[in-house]
Amino acid sequence: MADTDEDSVYFIPDNSWFPIGIAVGLFLLVFGLGSWLNEIKAGEEPSLVAFYAGALIFAVVLYRWFAAVIDENLAGLPNARVKRSYVWGIGWFIFSEAMFFAAFFGALFYTRVLAVAWIGGEGAKGVTGDYLWPEFETAWPVVNNPDPSVFANPRESMAAPSIGNWLNYLPFWNTVILLTSSVTVHFAHTAIKDEAQGKMTLWLGVTVLLGILFLILQVEEYLEAYQELGLTLSSGIYGSTFFILTGFHGFHVTLGTFMLFIQLLRGMRGHFRPHDCFGFEASSWYWHFVDVVWVGLFLFVYVF
């Protein structure tokens, strides 16, 4: 580790009220959300004070926190070494997010390959189907549930049509959009390296718009699923895995778009230098990650 002397003095922030603020906000948020869900389940009038209070505190403190970090950065307090810590931080955070999705992909593969086969009377534990579910046939997507009186059947699934008909297939266009956005965000990065403010604004703006477009189409798709296909969260395992995977992905896209939007605002204020644009880079890595997850989704949820 060949550190210059300047490099070796690590920036330690002073005492800060942000962490405890976030902790309080988070607590109120989840406590409120939990009460809300339980009240809905019990058919009671939900009381949302704690939830909104928590969300507000959380949002305000987070805003202040990030603002503080940005100010520190503009003031040149953190040196290259601190920034390396940030890089490690975001990198491994993205890894943990990948593992979060891995749990849902695991559920998808397990149910698809093992559980549905067994319940349908095939494979090592086919006796399950023979004896307990004689009516049920193994198939994926599952459109006839083992017990439709408990989990209503969807009318149709979201499975992809043959490749020739993809031009009419919304998830295909969503794939195109997201892949394109990964390229545009890269152009924005190059623009920062070239110190081309205008180009940066352009490409980052396009990326944000693509993100929003993706989300609009995703909402469109959900509406169709709920209203026309009868495909819902509670329509059996296909709907369960479909919505949990695409839903959490959509949530991450929302987050990513928001992050990029903030970077856009910062970029327009000239916060970035060719070798000092961590906020932007972190958001763009996150964006690439969200993109990769989508490719996995497109392949395993829609196509195969």
């Binding site: 869900l37 809905i40 389940k41 559920a107 397990y110 149910t111 093992l114 559980a115 549905v116 067994w118 319940i119 399950t128 307990l132 579910w133 599952v142 549930n145 083992p146 017990d147 408990v150 989990f151 819902t232 969260l233 509670s234 059996g236 395992i237 296909y238 709907g239 369960s240 895995t241 919505f243 949990i244």
Partner: peptide, 19 residues
């Protein structure tokens, strides 16, 4: 499974408690 009616852990919907 508890609040939104999914069937990850219920064989009646094609899931499996063992999952």
């Amino acid at each position: 499974d508890i609040h939104f009616g999914t069937s990850f852990f219920s064989a009646a919907g094609g899931g499996d408690p063992v999952l």
